[in-house]
Design a protein around this nucleic acid. Structure first.
Lengths: 117, 117
DNA sequence: CGCGCTATTCGGTATTGCTATCTACCGGTA
DNA sequence: TACCGGTAGATAGCAATACCGAATAGCGCG
């Protein structure tokens, strides 16, 4: 992807990761892989780890060190109460923004094939 | 709104402004007002002007100085070919992201009112 | 002249994702 | 033993962008 996606991920990637953790706890490497599966093919490890450090410091997740068979111990992150609250706020903000942007894309009171161009 | 919205606007505000300009040319002060009308109540002038300078330097808009009856001359921005192309790219990127995020919000194979909480 | 409204510009700050690199652990192989 | 590939995490420096606050500029009115 391009620069547009990079900038758009600012502010949303955090919510995306929290949403992934809301489904089930996971560790950094795993989260990166899951993002790749879901189409975010060029999000690198470094980005995810830095983000995880941030959300940990803000107290949105609980961390458990789990030994791994191959490699250093995993840090498994799980969403806690504050994280769930924050995620809900995220959905609110996202909904607000997405609604308005979609409205710009398909302006009411304009002919159908306007705004796409 | 809060910090979340601020960060989420990164990368999208540019597209939002371009979309507004796609409807019809406008000048900075007017764009700010239009954003306010559409619900982005706390976007300040300074942000919009800085953004306009950027998209002008990238050649996405044409500029015309128009004298005003009240106040300094207005700089009227209108989307040009490159801008239209860029906007279409924006819609592509936005669509990609929005689709994946909505999928996270309403995971397939989960009961309906999951993920909202 | 000073006040208010319109309109634009500028300097500094904070956040955040990216690149690139580094450490560390394990199993397999030469 | 020595090296390599895959797993796992951490860190430093950079670029982009939105915010805040203030300044500047033009015009009409009391």
């Amino acid at each position: 992807m391009g620069k547009q996606m990079t900038e758009m991920l600012k502010g949303t990637l955090e919510g995306i990761v929290l949403a992934i953790l809301a489904v089930q706890p996971a560790y950094g490497y795993e989260i990166t892989a899951r993002l790749r599966e879901q189409g975010f093919s060029d999000i690198v490890e470094g980005t995810v780890y830095a983000l995880l450090v941030r959300i940990e410091q803000r107290g949105l997740v609980d961390v458990a060190k789990v030994p791994s068979e191959k490699g250093p111990p995993r840090k498994v992150y799980s969403l806690n109460g504050a994280g769930r609250e924050y995620l809900q706020e995220f959905w609110g903000t996202w909904g607000f923004l997405a609604e308005r942007i979609d409205r710009l894309r398909h302006p009411a009171g304009k002919s159908q094939n306007e705004g796409e161009n």
